[in-house]
Design a protein around this nucleic acid. Sequence first.
DNA 1: ATCGTACTTGTACATACGTACAAGATGATC
DNA 2: GATCATCTTGTACGTATGTACAAGTACGAT
Lengths: 184, 184
Amino acid sequence: MTARRPQRARDPEARRAALAAATMEVIAEAGVGRTTHRAVAARAGLPLGATTYYYPTLDDLIAAGLRHAVNTLQADLDQWAERLRAAPDMPDELTVLVQEYLTDRPQVRLEYELCVAAARDEALRPLAEVWMNGLVDVLEPYVGAAAGRDISALLDGIILLALVTETDLDAPGLTRAIRRLSAT
Amino acid sequence: MTARRPQRARDPEARRAALAAATMEVIAEAGVGRTTHRAVAARAGLPLGATTYYYPTLDDLIAAGLRHAVNTLQADLDQWAERLRAAPDMPDELTVLVQEYLTDRPQVRLEYELCVAAARDEALRPLAEVWMNGLVDVLEPYVGAAAGRDISALLDGIILLALVTETDLDAPGLTRAIRRLSAT
DNA sequence: ATCGTACTTGTACATACGTACAAGATGATC
DNA sequence: GATCATCTTGTACGTATGTACAAGTACGAT
């Protein structure tokens, strides 16, 4: 074969990461089912062959993308924890955090894309569980494990509703609901 | 062309419906993104050409499948309304209904598949809204519109959690959470 | 009985896909 | 500077896909 184009500087780890990040973006835009090697390669600005070199199969590539997404979400959650710690009132602050989270629609879609993928593919389940339990862990110090799970579920449902209907969030209503579920 | 196989009896409306139902099943199993004409045709026991005759494009076919799914869900919701009407205690009965709903995992996946698809494709949004508002309408007579929306969101979140973690539902906990959100 | 429209079916075709792989380039080690 | 494992890249190949369409068939209108 004739490799005409000059080769770029070598940086395997950066490539692995770039591919995972690009995969995450493609999943967010097109969905897991429409994620392809070629779309990821184009998004990452890398040749097709790079995808199969670092991730032998498409499933590997998608798993890497979802893992990358969970890491991103985990970082977000750490910020949530810190914001809540500093806030005078938990339900108020949590409502604001949800409002801000809803700003980035592709990111939000990714969350549910991950869940649906995990519901279908057992291998992805641990990944989705990390994400689903993350918020519960953040809330647990404030309201205990059971109420934490309830509030976490409420938020997932409210966020899904906002995602689908594209209506604005009813912030006071959400704050009130969080308060009700927080009762000890 | 030579149409060797004897043609079957004509029944256009039945075919349209069979294709929509088959599409719904394929979506539930494989996801919107992996739904193909050929998979649907095979599932329906019809030749490939039938799919494009009744639904010119793949998007049309998928939209028909999701519409069929919403109709099914709507029928379920009507049963929910009736069961709740006959029950002595709403939160108790609602918990039981959720437990029963979780029995059919593919059906549950379909719900979220619809939501994610609607989040991505504006044309599907009205369809998803019918579904998302459906439960709110059922609950509204009992607790009002605002609490109805909260409880509906809670259930969506709880169901998603059960779908992903595949753990059993904490029935008493769910009943308690519903009661808390029902406060007038 | 015939005719014409609506339906049925098999097949064709261009494209996109996952994956394999050969040929070159790089850079650490000696 | 020669060696060699590792990385890079373009291209190839078999398969699956969406869609088009021609040939054939049923059936109501006439």
